[in-house]
Amino acid sequence: MRIACPFCGERENGEFTYLGDASPKRPNFAADSGESPERVEDAFYDYVYLRDNVAGFMREYWYHGGGCRSWLIAERNTVTHEFRSVIAAPGVGAANPVQAGE
């Protein structure tokens, strides 16, 4: 399998590691916000465990650890292994200051 890193170009998949679904967002949680613990726990439970089992295109995290050390978000077809797009995660590099929660 070959993955086109947006920085390095097309590379062998051995340079990458797979994390999984890129859709879940880590819940914002402030220790002193007074939110109900159950609601917070439910949100984290969803974030950590609940995933759709997609047959088709899926956004997923790949880490180019054997290359430029960028975390990437790839659209990959789980049935055919076709990659439709590969983009950098929001905090890759330093060029653009990014706001929290994006």
Partner: peptide, 22 residues
């Protein structure tokens, strides 16, 4: 060492891109 480095990069690049960390 390797997995922690990947984890820290994940935190930096994905979870908290607003932080100034290298």
């Amino acid at each position: 060492a390797g997995p922690v480095m990947a984890h820290l990069e994940f935190c930096r690049q994905v979870l908290w891109p607003e932080l100034d960390v290298q």
